[in-house]
Computed example of a mutant assay.
Amino acid sequence: MRKLVEILGALLVIQGAAGLVHEWIGWFRFWVLVPYLEFLKGYEIWANIGLVVLGLIVLTVAGAMKK
Results as ranks from 00 to 15, higher is better:
Val13Lys: 04
Tyr36Thr: 13
Ile57Phe: 12
Ala62His: 04
Ala62Thr: 03
Trp27Thr: 10
Val5Thr: 09
Asn48Pro: 05
Gly26Gln: 03
Lys66Val: 04
Pro35Gln: 02
Ile14Tyr: 03
Leu59Gln: 05
Lys41Tyr: 13
Phe28Met: 05
Val5Ser: 01
Leu12Phe: 12
Ala17Val: 14
Glu44Asp: 11
Trp27Asn: 09
Ile25Leu: 06
Gly19Ile: 13
Leu56Gly: 07
Val13Tyr: 02
Phe28Ser: 03
Ile14Gly: 01
Leu59Trp: 02
Val5Glu: 03
Glu23Thr: 05
Leu59Pro: 02
Gln15Ala: 15
Thr60Tyr: 15
Gly16Val: 02
Thr60His: 13
Ala17Gly: 09
Glu38Phe: 11
Ile25Gln: 05
Phe30His: 15
Leu33Glu: 08
Pro35Asn: 00
Lys3Asn: 09
Ile7Arg: 09
Leu33Val: 15
Ile45Pro: 04
Gly19Pro: 14
Val13Leu: 06
Gly63Ile: 02
His22Cys: 12
Gly50Phe: 03
Phe39Met: 07
Gly42Lys: 05
Leu37Tyr: 07
Ala17Cys: 09
Trp46Gln: 15
Leu56Asn: 05
Ala17Asn: 09
Val5Tyr: 05
Glu6Tyr: 14
Val32Trp: 00
Ala47Lys: 08
Ile7Thr: 09
Tyr43Cys: 10
Arg2Asp: 00
Ile57Asn: 08
Ala10Thr: 15
Gly50Ile: 01
Leu8Gly: 06
Leu8Ala: 14
Leu56Val: 15
Val32Ser: 00
Glu23Ile: 04
Leu54Glu: 06
Glu44Met: 10
Ala62Tyr: 00
Ile25Met: 07
Leu51Lys: 05
Val52Phe: 02
Val21Pro: 04
Lys3Tyr: 08
Met1Ser: 08
Tyr36Arg: 15
Leu33Phe: 14
Glu38Asn: 12
Glu38Met: 08
Phe30Lys: 15
Lys3Ala: 12
Ala62Phe: 02
Val52Thr: 05
Phe28Glu: 02
Glu23Gln: 12
Met1Gln: 04
Val13Pro: 06
Ala17Gln: 07
Trp27Arg: 08
Leu8Cys: 10
Leu12His: 09
Leu51Thr: 08
Val58Cys: 06
Phe39Lys: 07
Tyr43Trp: 15
Leu20Gln: 06
Leu8Pro: 05
Phe30Glu: 14
Lys3Phe: 06
Gly16Trp: 03
Pro35Asp: 00
Lys3His: 06
Leu4Tyr: 08
Val34Asn: 03
